[in-house]
Structures are given as structure tokens and as C-alpha cells.
């Protein structure tokens, strides 16, 4: 059946979220994943969830709140809710100027230091990896920098996200052309197999990345992530309020080995969040260093 009546007033009328329900849901979301839904996004939430409520045949947002707590399908619904409040937008080689600095300056420096020490265990953490484009891009960059040496190194990219759905897509590793739009063309045959219209990550590259579900508001889980030389958390903390940002960024600081670097999204700032990192300015990008 078509959507003809679903949005009209024929059945049930429009669903509005009351102030009390909004606060209830907002606090619930915050407690679950640290995302703070600001007041000005109230209508967005109402709008985007209205369809969920209709599908579940619920009368108001209070019932939805109950559903999230008690229903036998609450787990699945929670992921749906997360999908509604976050965007999973991402792409390969997102923000090329930043990645250029990363490849030519940062990774080169970190690997240089490691060579000096005879250490060949490289660990990178991509936190909030969405459908996998970011960690696979990092894998490509590492492969490009290490070249023939790659096989003799122990490289692991830990890629984590809140949403199981995006992780599932990430593990598949099949992508369309659009998400490759800023990827240098000559890299495609090296790291992808053609799969009809799509591109499939080659197994050698795929094995560098390991995906897992992780909620950034779970302090204990964050402590369990293996310590890294590099942490990427791009376009994720925008959803968080300052307190949550402080906690998450603090956890990355703790995770990093001395001399390691953190990279955040280009529209994100650590102002008022932390002074612990040393910001290093490059043309088009800032790198945050944990000094030794």
C-alpha cells in the first residue's frame, strides 16, 4: 500500500512531542550514548521519529520511551533511534588536505620514529568509523607509505562505531563509485576488485582493519581499546556536549602512546575541551600531538 494516508490527518493526526517527553527522551539518549540533542533540534527529532511511532503504532512519545525501555524489540529500536539522531555520512579520502598532511608528515614521522626504535607494531584507532570508508582509507595510506615493507609490519586499524548497522556494511567492504569521488583514481585497481558497478576491498587490505561495536560513552570499554600511535575521531564529537567531549577526548589522550597524534574533523574544535594536546598547524589541517 502506498503512503497515501500515512502523513495525512486521516488516521491519528500529527504526532507532537511535548516538552516533558522531549526532556525524557533527550536525557535517555544522553545516558545511552552521550549525544546531547539540543533544544533547537527538538522538531527534527519529532519529525524523524514520527514515522517510527506510526510504524510501531504508538500514540505518543511517552509510549515510545517505554518501548525503548521494555519492549522485547528494544535493542533493535535503540539502533534505529541512534540512526535517527546521528548521520553516518562519510566517504573515502574525506577531507583530502588533512589526509595529505597525515600521509606526508604525521605518518612518515611516526613510522620514522618506530623504525629508529625497531618497533613494527603500528596501531591506529578510527573511532566513529561509520560504514568503513575512513579506516579503509587509512589502511590504503599505510600501505602506500610502507609499500613493500608492509608484510613485515604488524599493522592493525581498530575501527569502532555505535551502530551495528553501519558496521555490518563496513565488514562487507563493498562500495559504490560516489563514495570514492575524492579518491585518487590510480589507487583503485591497487586496493579494490571490481564487483559489477561496485568496488570491493581487496582481502589483503581488509585484514588490516578490525571492526567492533563500541559506545564512546562507555568509559570502561574505551579503556579496553589497545593503545595506539594514531587516533582518528572525525565528525563524531559534534554530537556531544562539552562534558561528553571532555570525557571522550580524555580517553583518546589516555589511549595514545606518547608522541602519538589525534585527528578530528575540520569543523570541530578542542577549544574549552582540552589543552593537553599540542596543536600543530599545517596548511589546511591541525594535528593534535600528545607530547612525549
Amino acid at each position: 500500500m502506498s503512503a497515501l494516508f500515512s502523513s495525512s490527518t486521516a488516521v491519528g493526526g500529527e504526532l507532537k512531542i511535548s516538552d516533558a517527553e522531549f526532556v525524557q527522551l533527550r536525557d535517555f539518549i544522553y545516558a545511552q550514548c552521550g549525544i546531547y540533542v539540543a533544544d533547537n533540534r527538538k522538531y527534527l527529532l519529532e519529525n524523524r521519529l514520527a514515522n517510527r511511532l506510526k510504524l510501531l503504532n504508538l500514540k505518543n512519545f511517552g509510549e515510545y520511551y517505554h518501548y525503548l525501555q521494555y519492549d522485547t524489540n528494544k535493542k533493535a529500536e535503540l539502533s534505529k533511534l541512534f540512526e535517527v539522531i546521528t548521520t553516518n555520512e562519510t566517504s573515502f579520502y574525506r577531507n583530502p588536505p588533512q589526509l595529505k598532511v597525515f600521509q606526508e608528515n604525521i605518518l612518515a614521522e611516526v613510522i620514522g620514529e618506530m623504525r629508529k626504535k625497531g618497533d613494527k607494531r603500528l596501531r591506529i584507532w578510527s573511532a566513529g568509523c561509520s560504514t568503513g570508508e575512513e579506516p579503509y582509507t587509512l589502511a590504503i595510506i599505510v600501505a602506500e607509505v610502507l609499500k613493500g615493507e608492509l608484510a613485515s609490519w604488524d599493522v592493525r586499524i581498530t575501527a569502532s562505531d555505535l551502530s551495528e548497522r553501519v558496521l555490518e556494511a563496513a565488514r562487507k567492504g563493498v562500495y559504490n563509485e560516489y563514495t570514492m569521488r575524492t579518491t585518487p583514481k590510480e589507487l583503485l585497481p591497487r586496493y579494490f576488485d571490481k564487483d559489477g558497478e561496485n568496488f570491493r576491498i581487496k582481502p589483503e587490505l581488509k585484514r588490516l582493519v578490525s571492526f567492533g561495536q563500541l559506545n564512546l560513552s562507555d568509559r570502561v570499554a574505551l579503556k579496553r581499546v589497545e593503545r595506539s600511535q594514531l587516533v582518528f575521531c572525525r565528525n563524531v564529537i559534534i554530537y556531544f556536549d562539552d562534558e561528553m567531549k571532555k570525557k571522550v577526548i580524555g580517553a583518546f589522550y589516555d589511549n595514545l602512546q606518547p608522541g602519538g597524534y589525534m585527528l578530528i574533523g575540520h569543523s570541530e574544535s578542542l577549544h574549552n575541551i582540552t589543552r593537553s594536546f599540542k596543536p600543530i598547524h599545517y596548511p589546511g589541517a591541525i594535528m593534535y600531538k600528545k607530547e612525549a
Binding site: K246, G250, Y253, T274, R275, S276, F277, K290
Partner: peptide, 10 residues
Amino acid sequence: NIGVQEAADN
């Protein structure tokens, strides 16, 4: 160590 400083501050 700024990391230490900041943790104490918080």
C-alpha cells in the same frame, strides 16, 4: 605534563 595538569584541574 599538560595531560596531568588538566586532569587535576577537572
